[in-house]
């Protein structure tokens, strides 16, 4: 039987209370939301927090999806299935629903949260790539107030984020700009598994030209889940097949996959390129369809 090591259990009743508990209990305390990443790690003792602060009671406070000005705001406690089912998300950023469809399975998606996935910072995590490609920002709150960090600066390494010991990720803000098209492509060994490789593509188009782009990669060792070289190859260009293939090649060259039980590095590099091209073609088609 796999059982976590003993820990003290606390239940937060508000965001402020969660921060207060984090300050009081110190750096060996962890927040737990859906628990579908943290609890498995605790069972095999890869994680052994002394205290768990359950933030599920904050689902109402932090679980909504809304439009605020020119941003889509996704509460950190939004469950994966709620992101998948949200008409607002589908209208503005189909990439997030492409990604959600291939995150774990429907039962796991009932519990797992957007914020939990981002803070777990698994190098193969799908939303990290998708939200980085979308140029989203994360709102992080501590006792001295809130700060805003681009999602592409949220991750400092595998399983490590800039969220401080006594801070909590509260929401993700995705800027809404005209002419946007987005798509996500993933290859996994079996349904519900982590990616062997995956690619997120976002283009913003005006008059047939890509004015801005986001290219995200998961599971292939891309710094901060993105490929700036691929993005540079797209900006200011018409979305021709040559441009897409060149951007995909740049993404494949820039990432740094490693060989593991999911496959050899060269296979993953090939996938990174191919999936970037496929995602870009769909993103462009969606941007043009929406114009």
């Amino acid at each position: 039987m796999q059982t976590p090591a003993p820990f003290g259990y606390e239940r937060a009743t508000s965001v402020d209370h969660a921060i207060q508990l984090l300050e009081q209990l110190g750096p060996e305390a962890r927040l737990v939301a859906g628990g579908h990443s943290l609890l498995p790690m605790m069972k095999i003792r890869l994680a052994q927090p002394e205290h768990l602060i359950d933030i599920n009671p904050l689902a109402a406070e932090l679980g909504s999806i809304s439009i605020d000005g020119d941003s889509l705001v996704i509460g950190a406690m939004t469950r994966h299935n709620d992101l998948l089912a949200s008409p607002l998300v589908g209208e503005h950023f189909p990439i997030l629903q492409d990604a959600e469809r291939v995150i774990a399975d429907p039962v796991v998606r009932n519990r797992g949260t957007v914020g939990g996935s981002l803070c777990q910072a698994d190098p193969a995590e799908d939303l990290s790539a998708a939200l980085s490609a979308l140029h989203a920002t994360a709102t992080i709150r501590g006792s001295s107030g809130s700060r805003s960090v681009p999602v592409r600066e949220l991750h400092v390494g595998p399983y490590e984020t800039v969220v401080g010991d006594a801070e909590i990720l509260t929401e993700i803000r995705v800027p809404i700009r005209n002419g946007c098209g987005s798509a996500y492509e993933k290859v996994e060994r079996r349904v519900g598994d982590w990616a062997i490789a995956s690619a997120a593509a976002v283009v913003w188009m005006d008059g047939g030209i890509i004015t801005d782009a986001g290219v995200g990669l998961a599971a292939v060792g891309a710094d901060h889940f993105v490929s700036p070289a691929a993005e540079a190859a797209l900006r200011g260009q018409q979305p021709t097949e040559d441009v897409i293939v060149a951007a995909a090649a740049a993404a494949a060259a820039e990432c740094n996959p490693s060989t593991d039980q999911r496959g050899p590095a060269e296979y993953k590099r090939h996938l990174a390129g191919e999936l970037t091209a496929r995602a870009l073609r769909r993103a462009v088609a969606r941007a043009q369809g929406g114009q």
């Binding site: 039987m1 796999q2 259990y9 239940r11 737990v32 628990g35 579908h36 609890l39 498995p40 069972k43 768990l52 359950d54 599920n56 774990a104 399975d105 429907p106 039962v107 796991v108 009932n110 519990r111 519900g192």
Partner: peptide
Amino acid sequence: DTSNCGVCVVSVDGQPVKSCTMLAAM
């Protein structure tokens, strides 16, 4: 025990959940 197989699924407040990956306290 790893939230893969789904034999432990129960309904929690109307939604199916893998009960090996949820604390009783929750």
